[in-house]
Design a protein around this nucleic acid. Structure first.
Length: 604
RNA sequence: GGUCCCGUAGCUCAGCUGGAUAGAGCAACAGAUUUCUAAUCUGUGGGUCAGGGGUUCGAAUCCCUUCGGGAUCACCA
């Protein structure tokens, strides 16, 4: 944004000058406290005068009056002021707002930075296991990761979206064993099941067999703690894992086949989610790299070996514990693989400034440890790396538990949302005459907006409640409601275009600032906030800030729309201004919603 | 037990680098459409900001403490 419209800077400077001239002492920037003027008071920006009374040696009211009067007389952009208790509410001239609005009308993507920050950021999200389908928790993860990626791009960073696919280990062997034992050659084609669902089914089968066999062993007097490990199926799974590590051809083939099914299934789900990745990392590749890095670190003295052969790192001086990084039999652990993956990525992209890991908050300790290890291995980028930790999505009946069948499946939920969108749309009856295909795509767009907005408007770090029956709302503070506002702007502009109007900055050059209403200025003021919101949200890795802004702007526009005519306004200058206002609002809503991965329909 | 996160209206969430009378949505109630899309707008009711102490001119916000909920502290992932 043009710095001459930086209110914060302008008023801070003016206030400092006022204090100096009025009271003869310089005020520090900390003593100049500005905030947005509250809705119920007159004004644009408010100076909190309490910190200044020490300097002025006058009452807060008197101090406010003096400073306000000074500003009114010395600052061209200040048109008036009022003092309420210790608060100096400053009003800026209508010309200021209008000329700000004029300038941004020419900007293509107001608030967005050019991709020239010079920073390359890698963002990891999704990163599922390959033994079962994606669920509600993954949705929050994917939407968060995708949104943060878009936000990083919006503030000028180069972004690479990745995931680490946990494709090896005991979990996938369990599905493989169960399929081999009782699958009778079933495939996605033969069963008509989505690949990830089919593999997930065998994972459940394995668990059933495991439970049954454990119970039997316990009945025979085996220690319950050891029973599971002694079952036939578990032995088979462990045997399969050993064979996998030895690259047994038959096991490898089965592994590739079943993982392939899962990937085909995931692809469909990701496509429906509207997320994508620039590069995929597979644990089956990176765990070897991890082992090598641990060996190197061992030589450098970062790690140490215990008598039994296991390798550790001592983090006690950082307030953490000792942590194993390699088992005594030399096999890789979860963290081994993560070390390897991280370093591999720094090598693949030498210009990488840092990585963002979108992973649930149950792994906070893990990431603390991982980042410390990376740093000790000499990767200074680790200091900038960030664990985008998010809370659980809870259901009314508590946590999701796959064993109790309370998992909300991602595919099911998404199609459910589209279905609700269809019902609502039909009730409204505004889509009549559209081709069936277009309607279907609209239902998906609207349903996904509801879901994404719902999951993203909550502070990531907080746990959140998802009530399948009540959470699916399309009114109020929701995605569809914001979409609807956008559609309104589109409808107006469509008609404006039909009447031959062309949106351009000149549209507003002749309008009389005095004829513009409070509601209209409120919309401009809200648009003014956008760059600030975007940067704050990006800095805090918090898409919820964007979601709140989208809704606030939509609400501001709706309020304006409700009691102003746009195309039917008889004063032509005012009409042109309103068309421009509608265009810029719509554009800002669309751009900001797109950052959340939410698509905007042209009608609904 | 150690560490971390959370507790705000009936419900779901904002506000937390200290500032005005703590805000939205949903739900409830009362209104608004011969109008550019009412998935909207306007209004009413609804709060010991979990409890207690402290710092401050001023605390939902910072500190201490108690209670309640969650996570984590594996040669699991």
């Amino acid at each position: 944004m043009n710095p001459s419209y930086d209110i914060q800077q302008m008023i801070t400077k003016a206030a400092q000058q006022a204090v100096l001239e009025l009271f003869g002492t310089e005020a520090t920037e900390q003593q100049i406290q500005l905030q947005k003027t509250r809705k119920e008071f007159e004004g644009d920006v408010t100076l909190v005068v309490f910190p200044l009374v020490k300097i002025s040696k006058k009452s807060p009211e008197q101090t406010g009056e003096l400073v306000g009067d000074f500003m009114k007389n010395h600052v061209a952009e200040v048109v008036g002021y009022n003092v309420v208790k210790g608060f100096l509410n400053i009003s800026l001239t209508p010309q200021f707002w209008l000329s700000f609005f004029h300038d941004i009308l020419q900007e293509e993507k107001f608030g967005f930075e050019k991709p020239d920050s010079g920073k390359h950021v890698m963002i990891e999200y999704s990163s599922p296991n390959t033994n079962k389908p994606l669920h509600l928790g993954h949705l929050r993860n994917n939407f968060l990761g995708y949104a943060v990626s878009e936000m990083m791009k919006a503030v000028g960073h180069k972004v690479t979206k990745v995931q680490i696919i946990n494709d090896r280990g005991i979990h996938i062997c369990k599905s493989m064993v169960a399929w081999k034992n009782g699958g009778q050659g079933e495939t996605p084609q033969s069963s008509g099941m989505k690949g990830d669902k089919l593999v997930g089914k065998y994972y459940v089968e394995f668990d059933k067999a495991l439970k049954a066999q454990s119970a039997e062993l316990i009945a025979q007097g085996i220690n319950p703690d050891e029973a599971a490990n002694k079952t036939k199926v578990m032995q088979e799974a462990q045997d399969m894992l050993r064979k996998w590590e030895a690259k047994d051809p038959e096991v490898m083939e089965l592994w590739r086949k079943m993982n392939g099914w899962v990937y085909e299934g995931f692809d469909i789900t990701y496509k429906a989610m509207g997320v994508d990745f620039d590069k995929l990392y597979y644990e089956s590749d990176t765990y070897i790299n991890g082992k090598e890095e641990v060996e190197k670190g061992l030589e450098k003295g970062v790690f140490f070996k215990k008598d039994d052969g296991s390798v550790w790192i001592d983090l006690t001086d950082e307030g953490l514990d000792e942590k194993a990084v390699l088992r005594k039999d030399g096999t890789a652990m979860y963290i081994t693989q993560d070390i390897g993956t991280a370093i591999l990525r720094f090598r693949d992209f030498p210009d990488l400034a840092y990585q963002i890991y979108t992973v649930g908050n149950e792994q906070e300790y893990h990431f603390k440890v991982l980042l410390k290890i990376l740093k000790r291995l000499g990767f200074t980028q680790a200091d900038q790396c960030y664990h985008l930790s998010y809370g659980m999505v809870e259901l009314p009946e508590g946590k999701m538990k796959s064993r109790e069948g309370t998992v909300v499946d991602a595919d099911d939920l998404m199609s459910e949302m589209a279905l609700v969108a269809e019902e609502v749309s039909k009730e409204q009856g505004k889509l009549e005459g559209l081709p069936e295909e277009e309607k279907k795509s609209l239902y998906h767009t609207i349903g996904m907006a509801a879901l994404k907005f719902f999951l993203l408007r909550v502070d990531p770090k907080k746990n959140m409640m998802f009530n399948p029956k009540e959470s699916i709302d399309f009114n109020g503070n929701t995605g569809p409601s914001v979409q609807y506002t956008y559609v309104r702007t589109v409808a107006v502009l469509r008609k404006a275009k039909e009447s031959g109007y062309n949106i351009q900055a000149e549209m507003i050059t002749h309008v009389d600032p005095a004829s513009i209403s409070k509601a209209e200025f409120d919309v401009i003021r809200k648009i003014y906030e956008w760059p600030e919101v975007l940067h704050g949200a990006a800095q805090g890795y918090n898409p919820a800030d964007i979601a709140h802004y989208c809704y606030d702007l939509a609400r501001e526009f709706n309020s304006f729309y409700h009691d102003h005519q746009i195309l039917r306004e008889t004063d032509e200058k005012l009409r042109l201004f309103r068309i421009a206002l509608t265009a810029k609002t719509g554009e800002t809503i669309r751009n900001s919603m797109n950052l959340l991965g939410i698509q905007m329909p042209e009608r609904m």
